[in-house]
Nucleic acid binder design. Structure first.
Lengths: 238, 238
DNA sequence: GGATTCGATTTGGTATACCAAGGTGGTGTA
DNA sequence: TACACCACCTTGGTATACCAAATCGAATCC
């Protein structure tokens, strides 16, 4: 049974989304419906539909009457990390109760397949994708699709920062090891350890990311990237 | 400075949303773009834009080629409660660190204004809205707009169930008291107590809701409401 | 020279015409 | 009577024309 060909709207959404996530369309760049219409050879109706979906995902946003590719917002990155700690931490605790060994092993197999050391021809994109997918797959073990959607949405909003982050082979290996440790604790049905390791991993990754972004923000801005600096907290720390 | 009049798309979105949340448009009801065009006296372009936004909110969904008002899904209600426990619990812990006394007092003032006992002419809708708003305002004290959006989205998806829930004056007073207790713990900067009280409140409210829905689901279905029964967990409990 | 005004152009918002696909009902035949 | 077939109609998908508002620039006036 063949699937019907995707509609133009879906194709356009996919292409626009890919262009944004790959930074081909630069954060902060102004988009016009008619410009996109010409660039992607479609009419305004599917262009508008695609923009609406991307708006809901947070990848584009309104700027006055027009549209811009969402800038990279350092405050939002921190906020997303806090959300992920809460949701993924709770999800892994639920997974300890609900996931079968087979479910866990399936995720472990995916993780092993993406191990940097094993991945001789690891292209950059594959590694980036695998890192984000792991967290979604892990959340899925909780059997709560709302939590999965929340994690997936957060990973989407964070996806572009992974290209900017300094990703040395050592850093990739560290991330892989931390993922592995979470799965081991999950296999051992040790909810406290699994949650502690996972939240520490999220927090640590976020801190390394912020350091890298702050160090490079001037250079990145020089390439035309709009990066919104970390605004003072609306509610001050006591 | 007067705001410009809302565009037709926004007006249509608001009206459609209100019709869905008030159950004027029944869960499971089939919607056609041309039918809505006639009902709301607008053309298909804004109708499609409004449907797209409501789709992102989870209030309508695709059904084959067409659209339906999202059915009330008992599994999703439980999943949303789990997400709320995670996010709101984490948010109140952050609020203990970050919110000023003035911020907390402002939320307390809103809560007092909505106290059922004080509210002589409390119409049903006002009470419903106040209950949902409290949780959003509370989350806002964490100073994390991503968490606020997550809580707001969850409350939106749950909003229709509040009309179905049995809401006696005693139940309303109990909810108010539990809200008040959370704020008191927050004022005392007792993070553990605040989080414990809040998650217990969310869980208890959810359990009472599920009991009421299960008891009444046959009657409700008789009124044309599509209620999706609780599906077996995709990942079984151990 | 600088500010201002006015008009051409560009923009998103809206309405609508056209299309292909899917569904429905009726009719004719075995 | 039951089934098959076909015409029609409704549906969402798409393209496009038109509009009002905002923007940009040039020409003009002080």
């Amino acid at each position: 049974m063949l699937d019907t060909a995707p509609s133009q709207t879906v194709q356009l959404y996919d292409r626009l989304r890919a262009a944004i996530l790959s930074l081909e369309l630069v954060p902060g760049e102004r988009l016009t419906e008619r410009g996109l219409e010409a660039s992607f050879d479609a009419s305004r109706t599917p262009v508008r539909a695609a923009l609406g979906r991307l708006d809901a995902e947070g990848l584009v946003q309104r700027d006055g009457r027009g549209w811009i590719v969402s800038p990279i917002d350092l405050a939002e990155i921190g906020a997303l990390a806090e959300l992920r700690e809460a949701v993924e931490g709770a999800a892994v605790r639920l997974a300890v109760q609900r996931a079968t060994d087979a479910d866990i092993n399936a995720v472990a197999a995916l993780l092993d397949a993406a191990r940097p050391a094993n991945n001789t021809n690891a292209d950059e994109e594959q590694g980036v994708r695998a890192g984000g997918d792991f967290h979604v797959e892990l959340a899925a073990l909780a059997g709560n699709h709302v939590m999965v959607d929340a994690v997936r949405g957060a990973m989407t909003r964070l996806a572009r920062t992974r290209w900017l982050e300094v990703r040395t082979p050592a850093a990739r290996e560290q991330a892989w090891q931390e993922h592995r440790a979470v799965l081991d604790a999950l296999t051992a049905r040790d909810a406290d350890t699994a949650a502690r390791l996972l939240t520490a991993h999220i927090r640590g990754t976020n801190e390394r990311l912020l350091v890298a972004l702050n160090a490079d923000s001037r250079r990145l801005r020089g390439h035309g990237l709009a990066i919104v600096p970390d605004a003072p907290r609306p509610v001050p720390r006591r």
